[in-house]
Design a binder for these strands. Structure first.
Lengths: 142, 142
DNA sequence: ATTTAGTTTAGAACTATTATAAATTCACTA
DNA sequence: TAGTGAATTTATAATAGTTCTAAACTAAAT
């Protein structure tokens, strides 16, 4: 739960001018108690519902990517037809509910540490991500 | 390493008519010793190089999706701008080399079993996939 | 107030993928 | 082996998500 002046600082500290549009997007994304998972389309809808003035799609794309580059958002790839973003930027894993298309964060109580015994020679691990797809019992296992 | 008559059977057993095009695609995908990771675009290129007669992109899409539906291919999602497919249909995980954009299969010697302590209530796990992104040491950690 | 660089915008462009509908081919039957 | 109907292939159009463009606007420093 952050307030406007904190967003101004956050943006200034990242060499991003605190424009009206970016502040609105901050408010939608970061003025929350819980992690928020969204697609660009979700975000565009929320913005157009919440505020009278609309923000151009191009700006929403630009801002989300800027926030991702600055480390304020994480991108999560579940399907090739959509990009999901996550306001939880800590290392964590996900459940993906195939019935509802919703992402759910996992904590360490749910998935134990992944044991990587051998890495590719000469390479450094940049991330380890587990995706557990779940569905109601009637769905067939893949 | 399968031969033509085996592909004919494979297709017939799946209620897919063994057409010239499907047999060529089988030859590219399954006449191999090792696992093969590819995008539709990769496959289209290989086909146009290997054979004189070209196969329509629509047919390549249709066939790859039919093979996926029949369980002969697995789809792997790494980035939202491309679909990767894998001829290794066993349960396994992947390294993804961010420098070369190549996928590498993991075996159990490389990644230990993922310990899922709690699943979402009322749901069944349909898959568990680990993606380890790697890059050369000079790249920054994400 | 002026200036300059950063930002926003609408719309065009692009890329991957799916849909369409006509032409072709497979495979069954006679 | 020719005829038939359904499956398949094909080129092309359509669509969806995303990126590009370049003109208009705005923030912030002088």
């Amino acid at each position: 739960m952050l307030k406007n002046s904190e967003f101004v600082n956050k943006l200034r500290n990242s060499c991003l001018r605190p424009t009206k549009q970016r502040l609105k997007i901050c408010e939608v994304l970061f003025n929350r108690d819980k992690t928020f998972h969204f697609t660009i389309n979700d975000l565009a809808k929320i913005i157009s519902q919440k505020f009278n003035e609309k923000i151009s799609l191009a700006t929403i794309y630009n801002t989300v990517h800027a926030f991702k580059d600055k480390g304020y958002l994480k991108e999560i790839t579940i399907s090739s037809d959509k990009s999901y973003f996550d306001t939880n930027i800590t290392k964590h894993h996900h459940f993906y509910d195939e019935d509802t298309n919703l992402l759910i964060d996992c904590n360490d109580n749910e998935i134990g540490k992944v044991n990587i015994k051998n890495n590719i020679t000469g390479k450094k691990i940049s991330s380890v991500e587990v995706l557990v797809r779940v569905a109601s019992d009637t769905q067939n296992q893949n």
